[in-house]
Every structure is written in structure tokens, then in C-alpha cells.
Design a binder for these strands. Structure first.
Lengths: 211, 211
DNA sequence: ACATGTTTCGAACGTACATTAGATTTACGA
DNA sequence: TCGTAAATCTAATGTACGTTCGAAACATGT
């Protein structure tokens, strides 16, 4: 164990990378240890030197994914000037979340894509972690609303879930090269803060026929 | 075959219902034919009287799910008065999509949840159908933008994907009883058209007491 | 060069699953 | 009541997969 990175650490990382990538692509159940091992350059049996089971490997992938996006958003807030506006804070959080999701990070996108279909027992082990991340967002939004930057009539919980959905769903359609991540974040913030509807001054009521 | 519904049809429907429900819950690969059969009140082998393979069963579930939401949104548009505003048209589409997703329909939510992790060959068979649905939305949005109801500066494609994401993600968090489907649709439309940011005319900086 | 610990291999095991096919039961018209 | 077709059952088959374990290969300090 001379170098900083032992051989074991390197292999472990390769296995995790491969697992995250394939879990994201095909889901957990459909991904075989044989595939993961091949992608990591070894035999299936060798995985057990590093991980106790397929489930354990899954749990580590999920954990890393959630930790990364959590840390990214947290740091985005800490990096802001202390007197930043609430809009800027939310914008920074949106950018951090989206960038983590779409830039290299198979771990976070794997977590988002497969979590709902993972064995229930595994889900239980990660609920606390997910709640903590949700709490981070709740905090940002609540502060913004209390200070008057966000409308006080809206159900912030619903807004937050809609926002997270809009962002998370990007893993299903985003492909590098077409639209930039920044452009997506900008559109999201524009919608969130201002909407994209045009007020028609002549016909100021938009509420005939409510069905 | 006396009645309108032959026994075969009834069994077939029960199998499909069970399959949609479990695919939605656990994903495709993790769902076994034994479970589906049990939920449908029969033995695994009996499924093959109705379906040629597990894949074939999957494809029918996916097809039904997409067809239902497509028809729902289409009918929502046809039901509107001919002179309806573009906002009302979009609002009706949002409500139709969301209601289909969250009200009883395991087929549509199964489609949305598992499509990205289904065997690639199966995906190919449904791309056309998905494109057709996307086209329906694109049409609604394009008309609205051209007529001036939506800002002309925005990338409508991005907005549409963000919107679909916000709606689709609701299958991951919505639980009947808490927030009504209508409330979710209302919040979505509010965000889309007006946003929830507050303009602060007097004090254009909204940055006291941060942290 | 040797010895010891680390990492990977390779083959084998057990199991769970999709699928098949013949036997059995059910429904129903004659 | 009987006969036939529809629908389901039951048991068997093959296979793919997660997992195990002892042997082999590799690395490293002495």
C-alpha cells in the first residue's frame, strides 16, 4: 500500500463507475454482475472481494449519487455572497442540481432513475438521506417565501415537487450538444419566477370558462 | 361466447391490470410472471394462453398506457369551445395528462416509469407512438406562441420538456388524499403562465436577512 | 529470492425464472 | 346428456444469474 490509491481502491472505483452507468441505463434488476464485471475489466466472482452482494453495491451507488447532488447544492449556497437575493439562491440551487445530474454523474442520475423500483428494503435504508436533501430545498424555498420573494398564496410543497420533477426528468431526455445545461436552468428559473405567459392588456381577464 | 365479454377477454384484462400494476411498482425485470399470474388469479403457465411472452405482455401494457393519455389529452382539446383561449387549451391538456396519470391508471404511469429501462428492442416499437404524443403537445404550444399567448423568446422545446417532467414526476410522489390533482394542475399552470416570483417595486433588492 | 498479504480467476452450486406441452377442467351448444 | 372447444393447470426443461470458494497470479516488504 505505497501509493495513496491502493489497487483495491482503483478497482472498487471502476466497479462502482460501471455499476452506476449500467444501473442508470437498464435499471437494477436488468443489470447483471457479469456485465458490471466485464465493464470493470474483471470476472463476476471478483466483485465479491470488494462488495458483499449486488444489493450492497447498489446501496453504495445510490448513496454516492445522493451525496453528490446534496453536496453540490449545499456548496452552491455557501459559495454565494451573503447578501444574495433569494432568486439568486434558488437559481444557484437549480443550476447545481441540474449540472450534477447531467454532467458525467451516472451516480446521481442512476439514483433518480431507479430508486422507485429498487427493493423496498434498500429504499428504506436511503429514506433519511433523501429527506435530508428535500429539507435542504424546503429551507431555501421557505426562506424565500417568508421574505416575500415568492408568492405567499402557493403551496410551496407542490411547487417544489413540480420543480424537482422538471429538473429530474431531464435525465430522460437531455442529450449533450443540443441544448446547454445553462439554457435549461435559465428556462426553469424563468418559468418559476415569471412564467412564460403574455399578458394581453386588451383582454385582461384570462379566466372565462373555468370548466 | 354468449356475453359481450368472453371469459378470455376478462382474464386478459385481469392479467394486463395486474401486469401494469406490478410493472409500475417494481419495474419490468423485477416483476415475475408468477407474481402477475397470482395477482390475476391463475398459474404462470396459463398466461401463455393469452400472451406469447413476457415481452409481448409488456408491449401491450406500454401501448395501452400511451394510448390512454394521448386520447385523454386529445379529447380535452376537442371538448373545449372553439373560441377558447390558448391558456385554457394548455390548462385543459395539463389537467387531462395529470388526471390520466394519477387516477387509477397504472398503464400510463407504468409506461412513464419504466419505459427508459425496458429492453431497447421494445422501446423501438413504441417510439413512433411517443413521438405522436409529443407532437400533440408541440402543436398546442406552437399555436399558443404564434398567437402571442406565450413569450416568443423562449425555447418551446425546453419548456415543453420541463413541463412534461414536472407532470410525469408526480407519479413518484403523488399520494391520493394529500393534495388534489386539481391543485397540482393549478400550481403547474400558475408557474407556467405567471411564475410565482414577487416583483418588488419599491425595494428592488429583496436581500435583507439572508443566511 | 523468499514470504506474506492482496487481488483476481475459474469453476461449480443452487435457485429462480421464462417457457413449453400434455393433461385436466370448465363452459356451452346440440 | 354428450361432445367439443376454450381456458387453466401441472410438471418438466433449460437457462441465466447471484454467489461461493479454493487455486492462481500479483504485489510488496525483507
Amino acid at each position: 500500500m505505497t501509493s495513496e490509491q491502493s489497487k483495491s481502491d482503483i478497482s472498487r472505483a471502476r466497479i462502482l463507475d460501471a455499476a452506476a452507468k449500467m444501473f442508470r441505463q437498464k435499471g437494477y434488476a436488468a443489470t447483471t454482475l457479469i456485465e458490471i464485471a466485464r465493464a470493470a475489466g474483471m470476472q463476476a466472482g471478483s466483485l465479491y472481494y470488494h462488495f458483499g452482494s449486488k444489493d450492497e453495491l447498489l446501496e453504495e451507488v445510490l448513496d454516492i449519487g445522493m451525496r453528490r447532488v446534496h453536496e453540490a447544492v449545499e456548496e452552491s449556497q455557501e459559495r454565494l455572497p451573503a447578501d444574495s437575493s433569494h432568486r439568486d439562491r434558488i437559481r444557484a440551487a437549480v443550476e447545481a442540481h441540474l449540472t450534477t445530474l447531467l454532467k458525467h454523474d451516472d451516480y446521481t442520475s442512476a439514483n433518480i432513475r431507479i430508486f422507485g423500483q429498487v427493493p423496498e428494503e434498500v429504499q428504506q435504508h436511503h429514506i433519511r438521506q433523501r429527506d435530508a436533501y428535500a429539507e435542504l430545498w424546503r429551507h431555501i424555498f421557505t426562506k424565500a417565501q417568508k421574505s416575500g420573494a415568492l408568492s405567499s398564496d402557493v403551496n410551496l410543497g407542490v411547487v417544489r415537487m413540480l420543480l424537482m420533477g422538471a429538473l429530474n426528468w431531464s435525465v430522460e431526455w437531455y442529450r449533450p450538444g443540443r441544448t446547454s445545461i445553462q439554457a435549461i436552468a435559465d428556462h426553469m428559473c424563468l418559468m418559476l419566477f415569471n412564467g412564460i405567459g403574455i399578458e394581453e392588456p386588451a383582454q385582461s381577464r384570462e379566466n372565462e370558462t373555468v370548466t
